[in-house]
Amino acid sequence: MVSLFKRRGGRRDDVPVDVQGRRAVIEIQGVTKTYAMGDIEVHALRGVDLTIYEGEFVSIMGPSGSGKSTLMNILGALDQPTSGAYRLDGVDVSRLSESDLAKVRNKKIGFVFQNFNLLKRTTAQRQVELPLIYAGAGGRSRKAKAALESVGLGQRLNHLPSELSGGQQQRVAIARALVNEPAMILADEPTGNLDSRSGAEVLQIFQTLNRERGITVVFVTHDSWIARHTQRVIMLRDGQIVADAPIAEPLIAGHNERPSMEDEMEAVLKTVYYGGKEEEYT
């Protein structure tokens, strides 16, 4: 993983470090993204500064259209910002060639989508092998099997997406995201298409990956109950970060009963309330 950027000068040594001595994985400064829609310009991001350290478990919240997906796509090297700097593991992503960007997506980032994005007519095992194929890695079937086992799908290796439930499909997608042992997993509303039970399972997987393997996890959610399971909540509004606060006592997935909507809302707002209307959080 480290060798990837060797020929571009290697790892920078001025990577910020947080109080616990963790290095920054993501550093963005003044990132904007403007879409031209005919004559009008849509400012999806209006200057975002954000640093995420290795091993963090972060959720991003915000009303619809606030720029969460736009931000995630930039963090995932799927899209380029209109302006601003993005350093991933100390490397300036905006200066990378198309080919190196593909390598970053392949080795450094595992991306999980709301709609799973699995290939049709392809078994779970093959889906998970895909990043390994593009990495030119050996021992593909063994690694894919291990990744599927770690998300609890060891018995579903030869199932097609059409033969799996939504939650199982998303777990295949997570196995695919982590099979190349990336520095971080980015997930854009991974539980958005799932019922609450499947959502909790997915959440539990993320928590385990973060706690036991130290993988940095950043995900977008609309669900404040789910956000309370992370260590840090970032609130976006109109393309800007309006709140960024640690969760005092993160919940452990599967250990707590989901409270009523009101209680839940109150609990989040205590930490990240920024003055907007409450309805925006749903």
Partner: peptide, 16 residues
């Protein structure tokens, strides 16, 4: 197209 997007998202090179 979406399949191509996904393949690129998980690291496919242009050549792949």
């Amino acid at each position: 197209t979406r399949e191509i997007g996904l393949r690129k998202a998980v690291g496919a090179q242009k050549n792949d």
